[in-house]
Amino acid sequence: MKIIGLTGGIASGKSTVADMLIQAGCIVVDCDKIAWQLAEPGQAIWQIYVDRYGAKVLNQDRTLNRQAVADIVFRDRQEMDIINSLVHPLIKDRLLAEAEVARQRGAKVIFWDVPLLFETGFDKMTDEKWLVYVSPATQKARLINRNGYTEDEALRRINSQMSLAEKQKLADVVINNDGDIEALRRQVLEKVNNGQR
């Protein structure tokens, strides 16, 4: 079975591509969904945050206050590295388990939708790497428009990840998302239909 890592950068359109792959009948495992499940109250990632930061990262209902966590880790590179070293092994185990389930069900291909595919080293567990690419100007504009961030906030989040230019050098397949949604859909379906899945 082939494992394809799908990645991009914040506001690159990776989730849109993942949705298109699902609509085309592909199996896609969403790394962010795994992380959200593990961050539910009492789960492993939730416990990591509470042990490290205490009640200040919790809402009144004991759910994780994701904005409070983001405010800590996006302002301190060292803190982000520490959290990632604790969280990523948990996510890796779940991704491998999902791949094994797919393999046992006879799947020929599975996509792992992983925003930090290269940063985490998860790319080394894949057979092929797909990147959803946008220009830096498009990425910043989309993030400001989508999330209402200031330019500084947008740049801080963009710069917390490996640049898309660097990722492009490591990718096997590059899907350019500087155009409209139909141009994106055509590229995705072409890749799928050309047997690259």
Rank of each mutant, 00 (worst) to 15 (best):
M1I: 03
K2M: 03
K2L: 03
L6G: 08
T7F: 02
I10W: 11
A11G: 02
G13Q: 14
L21I: 11
Q23V: 05
Q23S: 14
G25P: 01
G25I: 06
C26G: 12
I27M: 14
V29F: 08
D30V: 02
C31M: 02
A39P: 03
Q43K: 14
W46F: 10
W46T: 10
Q47S: 15
I48F: 00
V50T: 13
D51T: 09
D51Y: 00
Y53S: 06
G54D: 07
G54F: 04
N59T: 15
R62L: 14
R62E: 13
T63I: 08
L64H: 08
L64I: 15
R66A: 06
Q67L: 10
A68E: 01
A68G: 06
V69R: 02
V73M: 05
V73Q: 06
V73C: 10
F74Y: 11
R75C: 12
Q78V: 12
D81P: 00
N84V: 03
V87R: 01
H88E: 12
P89N: 00
P89M: 00
L90E: 00
L96P: 00
L96I: 09
A97L: 02
E98W: 02
E100M: 02
V101A: 13
R103D: 11
A107W: 02
A107P: 09
A107N: 08
K108R: 13
K108M: 14
K108N: 07
F111E: 13
V114H: 04
E119I: 09
G121T: 13
D123T: 07
D127W: 08
V132E: 04
Y133G: 02
A137E: 15
A137Q: 11
T138C: 09
Q139G: 10
K140W: 04
I144Y: 11
Q161R: 00
K167V: 15
A171F: 06
V173S: 04
V174A: 04
I175E: 01
N176I: 11
D178F: 05
G179R: 07
A183R: 10
A183V: 02
R185W: 01
R186E: 07
K191E: 09
K191Y: 08
N193W: 04
